[in-house]
C-alpha cells in the first residue's frame, strides 16, 4: 500500500544530484560523497580501489538504510592528495581496468570460436 515504487531504486529524482560532495569541517583532506541510487555494486569496488591508493588513509562506504537508495563514500587522504583527487583517480583506474577486461574477454572469445 505505502510501498515505494520499484523505479525509486534506480531513477534519480528530478532536481537531485547524482553525486554530492561534502567536505569534513573538522579534518583536513577528509570528505563524504553521497551517491544517489547506487548500492554495494559501485560502493564496494570504489572502496577497494581507493584502498590501493597509497595516499588514501581511510576509505569506506555505507548504505544507510535499505529503503534510502543511496550510498555514502567517505575518504580521508594524506596531505599531498585530496579526497576528490583520490575519488577521480579510483574511477579512472576502474574504468581502465574494465576496458582491459573487455578486450581480454573479446580476445579469449575469438580464440575460442576459432577452435571449433
Amino acid at each position: 500500500m505505502n510501498a515505494p515504487d520499484r523505479y525509486e531504486r534506480f531513477v534519480v529524482p528530478e532536481g537531485t544530484k547524482k553525486v554530492s560532495y561534502e567536505r569534513d569541517t573538522k579534518i583536513i583532506n577528509a570528505a563524504s560523497f553521497t551517491i544517489e541510487r547506487e548500492d554495494h555494486t559501485v560502493g564496494n569496488i570504489l572502496r577497494m580501489q581507493l584502498h590501493r591508493d597509497d595516499n588514501v588513509l581511510f576509505a569506506g562506504y555505507k548504505l544507510p538504510h535499505p529503503l534510502q537508495y543511496k550510498i555514502i563514500v567517505r575518504i580521508h587522504t594524506a596531505s599531498q592528495s585530496s579526497p576528490m583527487q583520490a575519488y577521480n583517480q579510483a574511477l579512472n583506474d576502474l574504468d581502465k581496468e574494465l576496458d582491459h577486461l573487455k578486450n581480454a574477454f573479446e580476445a579469449e572469445m575469438a580464440k575460442h570460436s576459432r577452435a571449433y
Binding site: 544530484k17 547524482k18 553525486v19 560532495y21 560523497f33 551517491i35 547506487e38 555494486t41 559501485v42 569496488i45 570504489l46 576528490m84 575519488y87 577521480n88 574511477l91 576502474l94 574504468d95 574494465l98 576496458d99 577486461l101 573487455k102 574477454f105
Partner: peptide, 14 residues
C-alpha cells in the same frame, strides 16, 4: 562490463 562502465561513469563528479 559495459553496464558497469556506464555506472561508474555516471558517478563522476560534475
Amino acid at each position: 562490463i559495459e553496464v558497469l562502465k556506464q555506472k561508474l561513469d555516471s558517478v563522476r563528479l560534475s
